[in-house]
Design a protein around this nucleic acid. Structure first.
Lengths: 152, 152
DNA sequence: ATTGAAACTGCAACATT
DNA sequence: AATGTTGCAGTTTCAAT
């Protein structure tokens, strides 16, 4: 999609301070509220803004364990990717799925209430995913979203 | 923080359909708008809802390259973690920073306009980060957020 | 780009359970 | 102590100009 400097200012502002009142967002981007609104509408239609998201702190909710799992799949089956992804989507504790080019094929981010709970998910929901050839796990300590000056 | 079923329904609804008008959110959660608002207020205060975020599709914006980088740090220096993290935060193209327990210490998610741009970032901003002992990179093909029935 | 009308939101006051 | 009701000023959305 085609983007100009005005769009860029709006996007940068939206990322820097999400939830800013739209009048103020418009002012900071240097446009009138109506223009700002129409621009955002087009950015949505164009797929640049895919939606909004409520940021949930799983730790504050009592989900103490977060794990990043890397998978190599058995690529002798050409449908391995699709079937693995479809199965992973069915596991509610899987909160992110990424696919890669290279030796590692997939990465899943998984949350659990505690270690016992994680063990259960791991054994019954993760190890049972189809087409796994190899897998290694990393316990997450913390996630930081870089909010420094954004590259657009 | 203490959460009851009403909070859970509100949170689930907020995650399932972010940006839903507040009156409708309340209705679907089975509470009146005022109650819904008060609950959300408390969830914010309690740190369970950390904020909202606009989901930007970097690919649609012309940022074609996304890479996941895993680092092992030189732990002979006890400040390796802090210094690495602080330096990584200064790189605008780094959009996520995670730290782990185990052999892999950190993971960075990096975006770039194209391969040439990525090369430049990689050489000048990534390899220059302090205390790197080892590092491997994975080219991202796609990210899927699991939106299946949420585990709360 | 500006105006303006209709709808919606955030928040408060007060009564209710 | 938490909930529901009502109310309203301010904001947002969106069409007409």
């Amino acid at each position: 999609m085609q983007i100009d400097d005005t769009d860029r200012r709006i996007l940068r502002q939206m990322m820097a301070e999400p939830g800013l009142p739209s009048a103020e967002l418009a002012e900071r981007a240097g446009v009138t509220p109506a223009t700002c609104w129409r621009r955002i509408e087009k950015l949505r239609e164009g797929g640049v803004i895919r939606g909004e998201e409520a940021l949930i702190d799983w730790h504050a909710l009592g989900w103490a364990v977060e794990v990043s799992l890397r998978f190599t799949l058995d690529k002798t089956n050409p449908r391995a990717f699709d079937e693995f992804t479809a199965a992973a989507r069915e596991v509610p504790e899987v909160i992110e799925i990424q696919s890669f080019l290279g030796s590692t094929d997939m990465r899943l981010q998984v949350i659990a209430r505690d270690m016992a709970h994680y063990q259960e998910i791991y054994r019954n929901r993760i190890l049972t995913l189809p087409h796994i050839a190899e897998l290694d796990a990393l316990m997450l300590i913390s996630t930081i979203k870089s909010s420094a000056e954004l590259p657009i």
